[in-house]
Design a protein around this nucleic acid. Sequence first.
DNA 1: TAGTGATAACTGGCGTGCCAGTTCTGGTAG
DNA 2: CTACCAGAACTGGCACGCCAGTTATCACTA
Lengths: 237, 237
Amino acid sequence: MRGEEAFERLRMAILDGTLPPGAPLSRRRLAEEMAMSAVPVADAISRLEGEGLVESRARAGTRVKIATAAEIQGNYVLREALETHSARLFAESADGRQRLRLLAAAERLDRAYNALGRQQQYTQALHAKVERIHIAFHMQIARATKVALFADAVERSRVLLFNWIFTVSPDFEKLPERWHRDLAASLAHGSPEEAAEAMRAHVRYRQGEVLERFERLARQQAQDSRMVRGPRRRPLK
Amino acid sequence: MRGEEAFERLRMAILDGTLPPGAPLSRRRLAEEMAMSAVPVADAISRLEGEGLVESRARAGTRVKIATAAEIQGNYVLREALETHSARLFAESADGRQRLRLLAAAERLDRAYNALGRQQQYTQALHAKVERIHIAFHMQIARATKVALFADAVERSRVLLFNWIFTVSPDFEKLPERWHRDLAASLAHGSPEEAAEAMRAHVRYRQGEVLERFERLARQQAQDSRMVRGPRRRPLK
DNA sequence: TAGTGATAACTGGCGTGCCAGTTCTGGTAG
DNA sequence: CTACCAGAACTGGCACGCCAGTTATCACTA
């Protein structure tokens, strides 16, 4: 029971940005914060490591995983495979009610993104909120297939990027006005092939931009740490 | 170190059929067998549970997961998504050497299946050996993409079924003579679309048969356990 | 014989504590 | 100031042992 609680709380903290990539996860400190012993915390961390959310080096600390550009790239490849099939299955077999709900969800999601684009400045809290709606939209498609194993795989792949994407702040004002509404229309009214192709374009759409931002960020951070390696290493957090 | 060892050994034992679906995994017994304490074993089991290979109920025992028909079905859906994309990427970007190697691997794999079909009787050891070649063939396609995250996802989905499939013994003599050679030819010489469609057909090929066998097996086992529930429950192992 | 129930054996969850290895800190020498 | 290094502080891996809850056993009853 306590192990489950530790797992869920840590997972949530990573996903909502409370524990950003690179944040240290000390077994003892977390155990104290959650009012339990170190054992269930260690088990939770071990499971999170299995999901790829966390990285630990024996006796040298555990931190929230910092993705490499290659891993971001890989995540997009994986998602293209999963979500393209998800779209195909949706177009093949979703019922009328599911199609209508998807169109409505796309409407809400686009509104949220457009509102984000009109904000004066970027805040992670707002970004996190909209990304949660975004993930819900895609999960609505995946879950309509009624195949739990498949929907779970889609969710895991989304969750990985969901964490990583916080380290960049996209140009929200440049996103297409009808970004998801057009996608939803293809899924709801198009053939399976059209739905799959629409989703493929959708997944690929921001891949290049995100990758480029990540690489720039990684170069910058490498340079930062090289600069401080002269006199002394900086305490990471 | 010991935890890693426990994890790998248990994983291997599940995959090669030493621990078939339903086999009990007692923390203390395994710890004794592997000459370590219960902690690393518990951690390994926890991670295996995260991968879906094992199922544990608090204070009532842990066993190797017995798949339901719905999960088998879901596994095929997931694999269709992953492997279809895998095939597409292979056709798009594999180099000449990789294509030649794939054709050769298909040749070997078909020979192994044909040999299995000529065997007088089914033995699990032989089946396991051929299935390992089978999985290696598909991983050769996935790894050619050079996308680790994606190849790992393909492997995980394969591994799940790899365990479950042992509970049925297919009609090996009815398998197509050139089952994988034709697939490999499509991947090595066809367009990305042709490759994807060939893989789709390949994945779907035995899905129906496997599912039917599983359902029949499940019904039979349910009936068995209902019969012995009259006088006394049978010790499961 | 079949059914029942007390109980012994066993299960996974977890608290405590030690260990060897890594990282951080502050004092010292140049 | 900078470079260095010894020791303090902290890290994750693991052993041990207890606990509450589940399951198997077997004498006993009808």
